[in-house]
Write a protein that binds this DNA or RNA. Structure first.
Lengths: 146, 146
DNA sequence: GACATATAGTTGCTTATACAACTATCCAAA
DNA sequence: TTTGGATAGTTGTATAAGCAACTATATGTC
């Protein structure tokens, strides 16, 4: 310690992700209050499908930075909730393409509003410039380690 | 969206904490390679005890931003690993004071070195000024929501 | 075409988190 | 001194992550 003056005391919270934990908890509470029967993790999978529907589980792994078993089980649970459907690929029978149901499409606007609301609360009092720097630093961290 | 120009696409990774997940995975791999039989979560509890030994489970909850059941079970597992001991408080019989064992004291230096190494890898190419801004933003986020 | 290798997905096991409900103890006010 | 509320910790249940081992399918090479 330390070629970049990182203070030991704050190192710890960087690793454990206290900030993102706090955001996720707040968002989960908003989901619960709105009677969206949905975990943040499930929502994060839907988020990628709202961007592009009908992608494979492997693509969901890459997009959501999760391993294959995690996606298998998240898709299991999302299927139970009737929010997605597994459709075997015709061109490659190893693959499942995951499609949103109409019910899931209906959730997009409300849940994204709650997510934006949460982020606004989280970032209250932080200037756009500083948010941008923070975002860039977190992106570099991710690229350095992924 | 958006009184602070937060871009939707990056909003998501802020919430899911991709950066802190990447850091934690890297550190866990270093622990495994070094044959430290220790999870990141267990390490984060030890971290607070290295700062101050003999605190209560409730104080560990506050320090590590976890709820009581999480700490109960982490302390359970740390006791099984013979890294901490529960000692009933004499002044308040509801409380357990948690003490490090000698074995846990030995882990401090090696594990902190690996944590610092991980952070240096994570933050490679980021200027101290930008790290500092990022740290401050994450602290504000935490304070806004906690 | 046969075979080795890679890829997509699943299952089993362990650890951790979140929430609710519970026990035990403490403390303060009547 | 009793009683009611607060606090410390535990337990049950559900969801999720990480890792290894597994099946099925695809692909490239001989």
């Amino acid at each position: 310690m330390s070629n970049n003056q990182f203070k030991r005391g704050e190192l710890y919270s960087f690793i454990t992700g206290k900030a993102s934990t706090a955001i996720a908890r707040r968002l989960q509470k908003k989901f619960n209050s709105a009677n969206l029967n949905l975990t943040i993790e499930q929502w994060s999978v839907l988020y990628h499908l709202w961007k592009q529907d009908g992608i494979s589980q492997q693509e969901l792994c890459n997009a959501s930075f999760r391993d294959k078993p995690s996606i298998t089980r998240l898709v299991d649970n999302l299927e139970k909730l009737q929010l997605v459907k597994r459709v075997p690929s015709e061109s490659d029978r190893r693959m499942n393409m995951i499609y949103l149901t109409k019910q899931a499409q209906k959730l997009q606007e409300q849940s994204m509003d709650l997510a934006n609301e949460t982020l606004n609360e989280a970032l209250e009092g932080v200037s756009p410039e500083r948010i941008d720097i923070c975002r860039e630093v977190l992106q570099i961290v991710y690229d350095n380690l992924k």
